[in-house]
């Protein structure tokens, strides 16, 4: 630790250096979003009027629950497959491991539009999957796969599995192999070792991954827009439609407020849980 001769001056320098970035976040992020949320409580009809009318609309409550459902299913599927894949990656030999990590990073750096578009080619009425199924004689008519909840979930899992794999590989690598070996040499079956040793130690990573995937899929726009269309309207596409097509600013702001509150509540709740059950916590 270096000597601090002028603590007050040091603090002032620190503040001065971080001022531009701090002011940018305050002025262009916190204030505008705060204004959007505050605006919803200043409705002439009453403080909670926009929310009452939101939840009185059957369509809009359906959209909220559909969005939550899609996000939850995407998270669960990504957790299961991401965990198994991350385990294999974390135990792969050096060269192969870096190759597998690159292969997971690459789709992550490819844009969401490109990745949603790929599924449009696969799942379309004359898409690859339908052509294959028809060619094999499995179906006699093309299946309607696009614009279903399944299509949106497939697209979302595709979007978020790499994120899950990457956030779990690090955690799994840090679990000492000795611990697993100790477990098996003490007579635990591989399945018991998995459930009683590996999984509990990986919980913090699973929670981080789950938060990233849930909040990401809860607020995603391009994938539900392209693969779900109007039939699978979610909060993000509804927000865009209210603001840019209907010019319903109050409605759009209400949706924005609901999305923000749910996202932040989930992040806070999960990080609280993670801190409580982390066995390695100090």
């Amino acid at each position: 630790m270096t000597k601090r001769r002028f603590p007050r001056l040091q603090g002032a320098t620190g503040w001065a250096l971080s001022a531009p970035a701090t002011l940018a976040v305050l002025g262009f992020l916190l204030v505008p979003i705060g204004a959007v949320i505050a605006g919803t409580f200043m409705d002439p009809r009453g403080v909670f009027a926009p929310y009452i009318s939101y939840f009185n609309s059957g369509f809009r409550t359906t959209v909220l629950f559909r969005t939550l459902q899609i996000a939850a299913l995407t998270t669960i599927i990504s957790l299961i497959f991401g965990f198994m894949t991350a385990y294999v990656v974390s135990r792969a030999p050096g060269k192969l491991k870096s190759l597998l990590i690159i292969a997971a990073v690459f789709p992550l750096l490819t844009g969401v539009v490109v990745r949603a578009f790929a599924w449009l080619i696969i799942l379309g009425r004359n898409g690859i999957l339908n052509q294959t199924l028809l060619g094999l004689g499995i179906t006699s008519e093309p299946l309607e796969m696009l614009y279903t909840q399944g299509a949106v979930i497939v697209g979302m899992v595709y979007l978020f599995v790499p994120l899950m794999v990457l956030s779990l590989v690090g955690v799994l690598e840090n679990i000492p192999r000795d611990v697993l070996q100790a477990s098996s040499s003490l007579g635990a079956s591989p399945i018991a070792t998995f459930w009683q040793v590996l999984l509990p130690l990986a919980v913090p990573g699973l929670i981080v991954g789950a938060v990233l995937v849930f909040t990401g899929s809860f607020t995603a726009y391009a994938t539900p827009q392209l693969l779900g269309g109007e039939r699978q309207t979610v909060l993000a596409t509804l927000l865009h439609q209210r603001a840019m097509v209907s010019f319903d600013w109050v409605g759009a702001s209400t949706i924005a407020a609901i999305m923000t509150v749910i996202t932040i509540a989930i992040v806070l709740a999960m990080s609280h849980i993670a801190r409580r059950i982390n066995p390695m916590a100090t």
């Binding site: 992020l29 979003i33 204004a35 959007v36 726009y221 603001a243 924005a256 999305m259 996202t263």
Partner: peptide, 18 residues
């Protein structure tokens, strides 16, 4: 914070305020 806040909400807030 900018990561924590839904991007689409951020975009909408900028449209409204800026």
């Amino acid at each position: 914070l900018p990561i924590l806040v839904p991007e689409i909400v951020f975009g909408f807030a900028l449209l409204k305020s800026l």
